[in-house]
Write a protein that binds this DNA or RNA. Structure first.
Lengths: 110, 110
DNA sequence: AAGTATTATCGTAATATTACGATATAATAA
DNA sequence: TTATTATATCGTAATATTACGATAATACTT
């Protein structure tokens, strides 16, 4: 017991949940905002700006990479992180889809 | 160690993260979708439709209530759950804000 | 080749989440 | 009053997340 029963839910719901999970930590939100503001960042830039250790930042970057929302391009000893435009748009669509489905069908409550 | 350093991040980033957290589990996404589709549900309706025990559903409902995204109106022995329109709109704005801030300032990457 | 810089990974500890059964609570029904 | 119904909460176990220091890996510099 304890493990999420992902299999029991639809692929779509899992997709929404997984994008949401990527955004579900303030450090990851802050990282994404940095990437948006500066277009590209190396890991060190982020370590300098956020109050977390290098290893923790690296871990968050990995999670964001797994979610697909960011890419990491190796450039010598540095790694250049950027928003993945395509996946970013997909995430936006998927989440916006959930939000607007309410507007469409909202009615009287109890 | 182990606890999220929420204090070290901005209120806004925490707000985004907390809404995202509410959506970060397929069961909660499925619950929200049910509430959207049927406008209102009692706990038992959800228990009947989702592959989780009554206590687990109740726990997820509690989390959604804490996030503010849903309300729970007691009606006799039953509790009628609904989307909280105001908070739902706030969540949408906050998340859409993040997504569109990219579109505005996107540029060349590495 | 040796040193430096940058990032990833390992090991580990603390905390949080997910899930269930059992039980408590509260309102209605018999 | 005593069931019945519906939901919440408690206790607990499994798993996941968050965070850090230490160390490894990799590419550049001297």
């Amino acid at each position: 017991m304890g493990a999420t029963k992902s299999d029991e839910f639809s692929v779509k719901d899992n997709k929404i949940a997984s994008y949401a999970k990527a955004l579900a930590h303030p450090a990851r939100v802050a990282i994404l905002k940095m990437l948006i503001r500066r277009q590209a960042c190396i890991c060190g830039d982020i370590v300098d700006e956020l109050p977390l250790s290098q290893s923790t930042i690296s871990q968050h970057l990995k999670e964001l990479k797994v979610s697909g929302l960011i890419t990491g391009d190796v450039e010598g000893t540095k790694v250049c992180y950027c928003i993945d435009e395509k996946e970013w748009n997909t995430a936006q669509e998927v989440l916006t889809g959930l939000f607007t489905s309410y507007e469409v069908s909202k009615g009287t409550c109890c």
